[in-house]
Simulated assay, not measured.
Amino acid sequence: MDLEKFIEQRPYLYHLTNVQNAESIVAEKRLYSANKIIELSGNNANDLNRRRRTDHTEILVGDKSYFLRDQRPISEKALAKCLTGGWEVADFIYHLNDRIFMWPTIDRLWRHFNRYEHENPVIFRFPTKEIIEVNPHVKFCRLNSGATRANSYLGGKAPARGEETFLPADDFNHSIREVAEVTFEGICNFNFSISTGLRPDGHFVEIPL
């Protein structure tokens, strides 16, 4: 995929988070993956980063509290049937937890927002060019990686997942319109102005940094 064309056609990337995470994100100018938050907490009891979260989870890092969303859309049974490369369910859960997720279109954002609307989440809007320049470890995915819905075209199985689910632009051999998720492993920094809003169809307010 041509990265420059992607940036031109998708000028903004959207990230949805719980309101209690928003203040820390703005203050630190940084987003963390679930794995990184668990690592920073110094506590990975019961392999938390390798188990599907059935409920929202609060993690303490010093005196700060981070909120990790549930992973209920993942069916472990369905996931086990579509994994490639000898991966186990726990391997893919870890792979998901190692990423910060953003959506490249308002339509994709709506699909995620609808599930959490009742929680009044915060939406961050990042300029695509700047966020990728600062975080060149960006990878792209052509499906909703955290949902394992059966596909009739695949004989009732969910689309395959594994090591090649998230790919850099040079290896992503699909069209721009097929990009479903834009991800960053570990940490995603920003040193430029971003915008925040409460609804995909609402007003976004710039936060100068």
Rank of each mutant, 00 (worst) to 15 (best):
L48W: 09
C82G: 05
A90N: 10
D70Q: 08
A78I: 01
T196D: 07
E76A: 00
S195T: 04
F101Q: 07
R161I: 03
L48N: 09
N135L: 00
T128F: 00
S193A: 11
G162K: 03
W103H: 03
S145Q: 11
A158S: 15
D47A: 03
I38H: 02
C141Q: 05
L31A: 00
H95M: 14
D98A: 13
P159A: 10
D201M: 01
I37P: 00
F204Y: 06
A78W: 02
N43G: 03
E8T: 06
G62M: 12
F204M: 14
F124A: 04
C82F: 12
R52P: 04
S65Q: 13
D55L: 11
E164S: 08
V61W: 00
E119Q: 07
T17K: 02
G86F: 06
A158L: 06
K81I: 09
Y153N: 15
H174D: 15
K139M: 09
D91L: 13
F140A: 00
I132K: 04
N21G: 10
H174T: 01
N49Y: 02
N49E: 06
H15Q: 08
A78M: 15
A27M: 08
N114S: 15
S193V: 07
C141S: 12
L209D: 09
T196L: 12
D70R: 09
N173W: 14
K36G: 07
L60C: 13
G155N: 02
I123P: 00
S152P: 10
I106Q: 14
S75E: 06
S145F: 00
Y153D: 13
W110H: 15
I194F: 03
D47Q: 11
D63W: 10
D98L: 01
I132T: 11
N43E: 04
P11N: 06
